[in-house]
Design a protein around this nucleic acid. Structure first.
Lengths: 341, 341
DNA sequence: ACGAGATAGGAAACCGGTGTCAAAGTGTAT
DNA sequence: ATACACTTTGACACCGGTTTCCTATCTCGT
């Protein structure tokens, strides 16, 4: 009788179906011990009333909510967005939602801010993107607060349960293999910023691969970058101004590779005829610069999905994989070295 | 005595402070009718226990939660991320959080999906990014469901209360002014995809500005794009292959401008010496291609903040502004036309 | 000193779900 | 028909806040 004009609650359903709240709750939660008749009847009423359980009430009663957090300070927008899409792939058709939280790595209050955020929102769990995923204090904070977490990274830097990683080292190796097969011997590297695990993995992978091929990497072919476009411009400039310049440059990410391309153009060095450039990340910019950049891509979206499932999926359904392979994306910035070399 | 090892609740605080729950609640909510003594006492206990109110319980009792949603299907990652940052600027230090939801504009179930999402999460309000912000059915859905919403756009397409817009038309005009001042007369345009309001605003703004300068825009100088890189490549190709090609091209976004740059390079047309190109959006790619792109930027982050405040701020504190000015960003892709013209 | 009006604080119900446990129903063996 | 085990359902308390309504206390004027 008392038909409410507001959104129906579990009580409305119970009354309309002539059963108790608890029975409706059982229907919602797919409890096994229900007679088919009852279930059907209640489901019919639910459909008729358009009842949807209130997530806040559920969260309160269950003492846990259905919010996943995404903590990131990633400079690459496309990476972050792809990651968001991947998480959505995992939680679509569930009651979970994704809360985003960009953080400022350079702020001295960062940890305090995040603590406050976690306390206040009481998230079910958080996903942490590199580079801050490399911050062990942050992981410790999550543990301390009893908040589930998964760290994305370029190397396994936590328990299997808390990490989803790409195998950067191996992929750098295949990039170097490719350059060597193309005939290059004098290969330079623009490293990523110190203190970044991914930068370390990439540069060590590079050194290891060069060693494998019996090639030297003199200091004059190593330049330091920051993962930013401008640093790629500067670093490549240094490399190209050496007395004997490299015939190929491995850039630790695509933005720096784009910068390197600029540096080459400024010096009238033609890519790939005079100089081969290879990037890392397969960010969208890679396809939109000239020449299109050969690079190494990692499956962010799949990794994101796996990470979200690690938090959300019932333990027995969890995929065991936590290290993902990257792949070489061949475009047009690599060619055999010029003859004179 | 009964010190709990779990996170403290309002009851714990009340007991420890020797007051009732309600009094603690009053302290939390800054109720005016409290003696200073009591307030201080309770605040001390709160600080000591590290009490933080449970947002789910609050949401339940208040019949509203503190979640803002972001609905987007924007192809430009940087725009989306900047927007997220802007929203965070607005809700930092509040109890609100931002839930993201990428949507698929091409899915026939899009509206149904969003309805389900809104029903399930019961968001406080949603922010809608272009291009789906132009979907009136979606706005109607929000109204029907009693969900607050603000649409971002390139023109005022809803009540003042529900819109934050940039003035694309005016900005295109200033871009054209700039080209004309530089000496260009034969100016082409690559339009955005049909059905996009922003595309319409930009192309109409272009036509109006050309008319103002008494310049004709023959059909052969108009090309259709889709806002994507490849379409810019194709469209610019068409324009450049005309018998008498333009000396400048206005591109309705930066990605297409990047494509246009490629098309010029393929044809050995030098930019800006032989051809000027101007973009729109000031996306990061604009600074990272060669030559750096002159473009029109709009203050996404500020607009995002304003949009979030429209939902979150008390009515009396709301800024009245809802149309934001863009600005011309001069880089190096525009120069006077070559002499022969 | 006393009653009126304002002010501070508390008791209990409520928001919309879930957990516990006992009651009711069902079917089978005796 | 009775006892017994097992399935199905409901009553009630509870999660952690807010709201309503009421009482105790505190001025203050006379």
């Amino acid at each position: 009788m008392a038909i409410s004009n507001k959104t129906p609650t579990i009580n409305d359903v119970a009354r309309a179906a002539g059963v108790s709240k608890k029975t409706v709750s059982r229907v919602i939660n797919r409890s096994a011990l229900l007679k088919q008749d009852t279930r059907k009847k209640v489901e019919a009423v639910i459909a008729e009333l358009g009842y949807v359980p209130n997530p806040q009430a559920r969260a309160l009663a269950l003492r846990r909510n259905f919010l996943l957090g995404l903590l990131h300070d990633n400079p690459n927008a496309q990476t972050v967005l792809n990651f968001q899409e991947g998480v959505l792939d995992a939680i679509r058709d569930t009651e979970f939602a994704l809360v985003v939280r960009p953080v400022d790595r350079h702020s001295p209050k960062m940890l305090e801010d995040i603590r406050h955020f976690l306390e206040q929102q009481r998230l079910y769990g958080v996903l942490i993107l590199p580079p801050i995923s490399e911050n062990d204090e942050l992981a410790a904070l999550c543990r301390e607060m009893g908040c589930g977490y998964v760290r994305m990274g370029s190397a396994p830097l936590d328990d299997e349960e808390h990490i989803v990683a790409s195998n950067d080292r191996e992929m750098v190796e295949s990039a170097v293999d490719y350059l060597v097969e193309s005939g290059h011997r004098r290969i330079g590297i623009i490293k990523g910023p110190e203190g970044f695990r991914s930068a370390l993995e990439r540069s060590e992978g590079f050194m290891a691969a060069m060693r494998k091929h019996g090639l030297a990497v003199p200091a004059e072919l190593v330049a330091q970058g920051t993962y930013r476009f401008e640093s790629g411009l500067d670093a490549a400039g240094q490399l190209l101004d050496r007395e004997q310049r490299p015939t190929a440059i491995f850039c630790s990410n695509d933005e720096m590779a784009a910068g390197a391309l600029h540096a080459a153009r400024q010096r009238k060095v033609s890519v790939p005829a005079d100089l081969s450039i290879i990037g890392f990340d397969d960010s969208p910019i890679a396809a939109h610069i000239w020449p299109p950049l050969t690079t190494v891509g990692w499956p962010i979206r799949e990794m994101a999905k796996a990470a979200a499932l690690k938090l959300v999926a019932p333990a027995d359904e969890r995929a065991q994989d936590y290290i993902f392979p990257a792949r070489l994306v061949q475009r047009q910035s690599v060619a055999p070295p010029p003859d004179k070399f």
